[in-house]
Design a protein around this nucleic acid. Sequence first.
RNA 1: GGCGCGAUGGCCGAGUGGCUAGGCAGAGGUCUGCAAAACCUCGUACACCGGUUCAAUUCCGGUUCGCGCCUCCA
Length: 470
Amino acid sequence: MALQIFNSLSQRLEVLEPIEPGQVRFYTCGPTVYNFAHIGNFRAYIFEDLLRRVLKYCGFKVIQVMNLTDVDDKTIRGAIAQGVDLTAFTQTFKNAFFADLKTLRIEPAEFYPAATDHIPEMITLVETLLAKGHAYRADDGSVYFRIASFPNYGRLARLDREGLRPGARVAQDEYAKDDAADFALWKAWDAADGNVRWESPWGPGRPGWHLECSAMSMKYLGPTFDLHTGGIDNLFPHHEDEIAQSEAANGQQFVKYWMHCAHLVVDGRKMSKSLGNFYTLRDLVEKGYTGREIRYLLASANYRQSLNFTFDALQAARSSLARADEFTERLATQAGAIPPGQPAPLPGWATEAGAAFRAAVENDLNMAEALAALFRIIHDGNRALDHKELSPAQAVAVQGVLADIDGVLALLQTDEVRPDAAVQALMEQRQTARKTKQWAESDRIRDELDRLGWVIQDTPAGPKLKRRPG
RNA sequence: GGCGCGAUGGCCGAGUGGCUAGGCAGAGGUCUGCAAAACCUCGUACACCGGUUCAAUUCCGGUUCGCGCCUCCA
């Protein structure tokens, strides 16, 4: 089997065949750092993280670039509103973004280029486009891309010239453009930009939004690379414009495969501040949910379908992970008894589930099926342990399968919290009470531990303390 | 107006022209001092209306509802 992905460009499933065998170069549209990212944003970043991990799982070397948009209308507006420098303003949200990625166990990309660090590259690209006749300078000092000069425009989004007719959303003040559909490569400075400006051959101004992705992908990945991803809302105009700029400048195909992640909705409704169903990652963490739980929920659905975020589902994610944790711990206990140097025969059910997992992720990242394979291991493993049919050596082998799987999922490692001395002492007190059959006292201590956030399990090997989630 | 996606049991969510998704929640049981965990058992789900077919949740058409894009929202 080989990794198959759904290519937005062809609208079909294709076997991923990188330009350079064994290595996938891919570009992912990153955040505009003007506020804290919300869970809808993170759905896309988790999708990209799963993709990255699946690529590695399938044996590819990965070079991933994620851009940081740190200059645009919103960042400028935000900086001015707070009366701080653009750089200072965006730095706060860059830091927050990286902290959030860590919370969600998203593996770092190889490069996180920021737009403001690549102004010269962008200016060079605009010069190339001007020289090749794909761009023109308007009366206001801005430079626009001439869509009429690029016949393939609209191919990705499947929009024809009719569909590109100016609609209500085209800004009224874009009179300077030859064609209303043309988009800005370089925006001339105006008063609303405050002190945000860079010098250019066309006078002071700033880059258009789409330009950074073309300039930076070219710099870090070359004129043609394998894979480009983003949210479905970026498909048009952003990605369409990237293609136009890059292919017009380089005269060769920009990207071989495009993948787009569908949106997240909350309680079946579009997430919006006015509906009161808008959540940043930080909002959920404040409510007591862990990054791992949120990751589970966001990772559990097909990336091409809209995902319905509900707190019931988040609670279910919590319970599912508790079940997984219970099993990995049982497995570790059993594996701990292994005599050193024993070869490990893998039970049949684990081999099958491991293969099912691989087949699932290779099928365009079918994470629901992949998780089903994980739960097959948990279920069959628990049964084998109950029936004393899993040797320590086999337990080690199963751990190996889980480790492989978790290379993709990044869900199984727990954020372990050890009970403190007081909690430990209570547990021992309860044991003493139990030995003398003082059940009322024993239950009272159990309730007290519960209030402290600890659940107790009496096992044949003695009592165990479990952190109660939330 | 144009283009596109979707509707699966209480919840989240795979999938398939006939054969169990999975998880969570719920019910009963085993185990346990009681629990917890685990295991065992348990659900005539495929929006609606037509059509194709021996057979449709799956294919086709329509209806209703939801979501998205149509120039700077992941």
